[in-house]
Design a protein around this nucleic acid. Structure first.
Lengths: 348, 348
DNA sequence: CTGTTAGCGCCTTCAA
DNA sequence: TTGAAGGCGCTAACAG
């Protein structure tokens, strides 16, 4: 089925094609009758303006690029969906590309999106390299980072939105401390992740404020998976480190802890309290009911899109801005008050 | 940062801009030296061809549109990711749009994508209306449907890829029958869903072949959620219908059944065997371990993209084609051989 | 091998 | 209010 262009319509209507253009872009300088007549013809002929051509001259496409690690992941899927919904609300469409956490791929996708003349790009990532990459060069379009970065200058060297991971760490630790736990181990910290550093710092400061010593099981691996959580927890359980509660770096890690505990018949929350961080869809399943800290993905998405809209507006902010979203505790069933009689292993 | 165009490069290189174009598109008719020189200049200046302009003349964008219900859903997220990966392997990019199951939205997105000159559109959907919509009119680009449709003419009236839901239903039923169950109820059938009809038919035929009578709990609701599964199962459990095994229409529904069973202290698989259909990520969690039937999403995605590639090739198939993917049983821990002594409620 | 020229489909002055 | 003409950035003949 051949595409019908503005010229075809012009021929049918017996007017110049500039007139068609005017009729379609509700230009004021056209008589209501011709407009109506032309619009009617367009409808009849199924005419649709070629947005490529339109963008070529207007220099705006109305699409923003989104580079995201992996939409099949429960976290990023929700982020991706919400970004699209927000963007659409602002009359923007999004071109979503999965980077699979590969920095080189991110670079290529960025070039691709820019070649496609997207009006801006949002990059969701949890790797510091991305921050370095983005700040180290300048791009033809505004970039918004959705994620965290270790560098203290983040927020002054690029536009970014992130969860307040420090507070997330503090909330989790304080909750456990409030339940009477003292031997709280933070499990799954990845040393080279800014996100994890912030979470850990929050946890550590809350511990110290309560006169307790932070206690960590690091994850030497590159990513926080259920499998890593399982292995780390197993290791912890067969050691003799005191521990009545575990603060897992992510929900996936928490699932691994849960699996290890189940295998060793360690009762959660009877002998061990467990809290995660993310609030994945499946954390709320009846057999899981993981107490966790919600990342508030809709808010993160909205902030990222909102920031992009500002950058795309007529008077964009002169300096870089950094928006921070506050996390929220979700109480479910994997934490209980400390009970020395049943605790897995307590120093007291 | 101003965008650098082919003209800027031409000026710098001191050649006409047709030469630049040739150097970049590895045209044979250009001297190696000029090509090298020009490529070097492009690199230095950070030149990137404007793909909009390029597409305008070539009439191809190298992007295929994907309309998908909701990428935050575990099923569609995986489908979406795999479609993108496959497309990229064929040097295509995808523009993914969430329809949120809204038919009108699908129509708008389709128009939008066509206006953006995508080379083709894949529509993932589980609603028959979409099939009717697509077959009822003609479009400027090839369309591939990923899903099921009730209409027998599906596959002759449009290009489509779907799971062999009939076989899926049969596999599940035969597995349960093989375990000795006779009172097997199919729970969660949605009457107006082609997918469900096919699954149910497979189940029913397997039952009849074994001399058993099919037994259904219908879902009057529009979608198959955990909540619906929970409500339906509760209802079933308080009734006196014989039932030693449940074949849930989807994994989400199975999760609901599991929740209801847990609440009523019905042991799975001791007193009740349960099988799902989908194989969501979380179906494999240690506390769930749902036996289910895998949709083979990577294969579905690959088939859809492969079909699209054929349609986009130099000699596309003349008639419509319909590819069908075979499902696969995933044995986990929610099914056990029938045991009259412990079965929930058996007619025997 | 390289330059010139004519569009791709559309928007936007500038005249009429 | 409408038409004519130029140009967005690029490719593809056609000359030279």
């Amino acid at each position: 089925m051949k595409r019908v262009t503005i010229k075809d319509i012009a021929k049918i209507a017996g007017v110049s094609y500039a007139t068609i253009s005017r009729a379609l872009n509700n230009s004021p300088e056209i008589s209501p009758e011709t407009r109506a007549r032309i619009q009617e013809i367009c409808r009849r002929e199924g005419y649709r303006a070629n947005s490529l051509a339109r963008s070529l001259v207007s220099n705006k496409t109305g699409v923003i690029g989104l580079i995201i690690p992996d939409i099949s992941h429960p976290y990023y899927g929700e982020i991706g969906l919400n970004i699209e919904i927000c963007a659409r609300r602002h009359h923007y469409n999004v071109m979503m590309c999965n980077s699979l956490h590969d920095l080189q791929q991110i670079g290529e996708l960025l070039q691709f999106l820019i070649a496609h003349q997207v009006d801006g790009v949002i990059i969701a990532s949890s790797h510091d390299d991305v921050y370095a990459y983005v700040t180290s060069r300048s791009f033809a379009v505004p970039i918004v980072l959705l994620g965290d970065c270790m560098n203290a200058s983040c927020g002054t060297a690029c536009n970014a939105v992130s969860l307040d991971n420090y507070t997330a760490g503090r909330i989790g630790a304080e909750y456990l401390i409030g339940l009477g736990h003292r031997d709280i181990v933070y499990l799954g910290r990845r040393a080279n992740s800014a996100t994890h550093q912030h979470r850990y710092t929050g946890y550590a400061q809350a511990m110290q404020a309560a006169g307790l010593t932070p206690n960590t099981v690091d994850n030497p691996d590159g990513s926080s998976t259920l499998e890593r959580g399982y292995a780390l927890a197993k290791q912890l359980f067969i050691s003799d480190r005191p521990c009545s509660a575990i603060f897992a770096a992510t929900d996936a890690v928490a699932m691994g802890v849960m699996k290890a505990a189940d295998e060793l018949q360690i009762d959660i929350p009877g002998s061990l309290s467990l809290i995660g961080l993310d609030n994945y869809v499946y954390s709320g399943l009846s057999r899981t009911m993981l107490t966790t800290i919600d990342q508030r993905k809709p808010q993160l998405a909205e902030a990222a899109v909102g920031l992009m809209m500002q950058l795309l507006s007529d008077n964009p902010p002169g300096e870089y801005t950094h928006r921070v979203i506050r996390p929220a505790l979700i109480e479910r069933s994997t934490c209980a008050p400390f009970d020395r009689a049943h605790a897995l292993r307590s120093a007291r």
